[in-house]
């Protein structure tokens, strides 16, 4: 097992390097200029050159990449073009706000989705299956930004029960999840954010459970006289690797923050920051955030792989 873990970690290094190359070059492929937002629209060529030089954008791209990589390896992600604040502070600050959201959205969506999917999978074709499948399709299909706006209209504007936007009256610096005055700001974005993962996990779990239920070993278990509860326990365990893989992807997706949801709720997380960085072509922030998020995905996949191999030794052997 230790050898497998070491091999998987070693494999993650070239992936991380590849990700750094892709995320560095991708932002340059997009049209537009990182200095557009700080230069006046009628900037002279001389002015453009002067500012490019001041910000280090006058060097060849490979040189810029190598310099960036060297700095990143020492923990220096550069400074934001817009704010001149260190990117590491910008990214970690935003990620911590997103983490608050996801730390509620993940258990909510995973538990709800898994429970719904398992229930539907155990009773394929029955009314409960049709209800769960229908609800999952709705969850997956509803545009979440639209759902967010509708929830705001109902619960904030009409019922005045919950706040519409932000992280509380003092902002994230004094956000305390243990106090209802802060926690109430979480309710609508967490529900909105959970909707798609609930649908996806429910559908995946339902498919995995019903597939395992049809396998021969289940018939054997029943023939051996095992109680239905014990049979379902085996079925759930055998369907777990497939569900875990999807949960891993959803974990990465949730950790990345949702651009649309964080914008609708003005939640100062990584998604909201990413959208501003894209609009402003704030390349250091864009590169830093994408790299951070990609690393989260790589780490999540690694953990999922290890968990899967712990549950199902066949994966380790293959």
């Amino acid at each position: 097992m230790l050898g497998y873990i070491a091999r998987r970690i070693l494999l993650a290094i070239p992936i991380a390097f590849g990700v750094s190359v892709v995320c560095f070059s991708l932002v340059y492929l997009a049209p537009g200029d990182p200095l557009q937002t700080i230069l006046p629209s009628d900037a002279t060529q001389e002015m453009v050159e002067q500012i490019k030089h001041a910000y280090g954008f006058d060097r060849p791209l490979p040189v810029q990449y190598l310099l960036w990589l060297v700095h990143v390896l020492t923990g220096d992600f550069g400074v934001s073009i817009s704010t001149r604040r260190p990117v590491i502070l910008e990214v970690t600050g935003a990620l911590s706000n997103t983490f608050i959201l996801t730390s509620f959205a993940i258990p909510l969506s995973f538990i709800t989705g898994y429970a719904m999917g398992a229930l539907a999978g155990c009773f394929p074709g029955r009314a409960v299956d049709r209800i769960v499948t229908g609800a999952a399709v709705v969850g997956v299909s509803l545009p979440n930004y639209w759902l967010g706006i509708v929830l705001v209209i109902i619960f904030a504007v009409e019922l005045m029960a919950l706040p519409a936007t932000g992280m509380g009256p003092q902002g994230s610096s004094q956000f305390n999840v243990l106090h209802w005055s802060s926690a109430r700001f979480l309710v609508l974005p967490v529900i909105t954010l959970s909707m798609i993962p609930v649908g996806i996990i429910a559908r995946t779990t339902r498919a995995a459970v019903s597939e395992v239920l049809n396998q021969d070993f289940v018939t054997t278990l029943r023939a051996k006289g095992l109680s239905e509860f014990a049979v379902i326990r085996h079925v759930l365990k055998n369907s777990a690797p497939q569900v875990l893989a999807v949960m891993g992807l959803q974990f990465g997706y949730l950790m990345g923050g949702s651009i649309l949801i964080e914008t609708v709720f003005t939640w100062p997380g990584s998604g909201f920051m990413l959208s501003k960085a894209i609009i402003n072509r704030d390349i250091p922030v864009l590169q830093g955030t994408i790299l951070f998020l990609a690393m989260i995905f790589v780490a999540t996949n690694l953990v999922v792989d290890l968990l899967q191999s712990m549950i199902d030794p066949r994966i380790r052997r293959s």
């Binding site: 706006i149 705001v152 519409a164 936007t165 932000g166 003005t266």
Partner: peptide
Amino acid sequence: LLPMPEAATRTAALLTGQ
């Protein structure tokens, strides 16, 4: 001063008194 780029969010924030 609060940055709020989404017009629907600004409207909701005003209607809710935020």
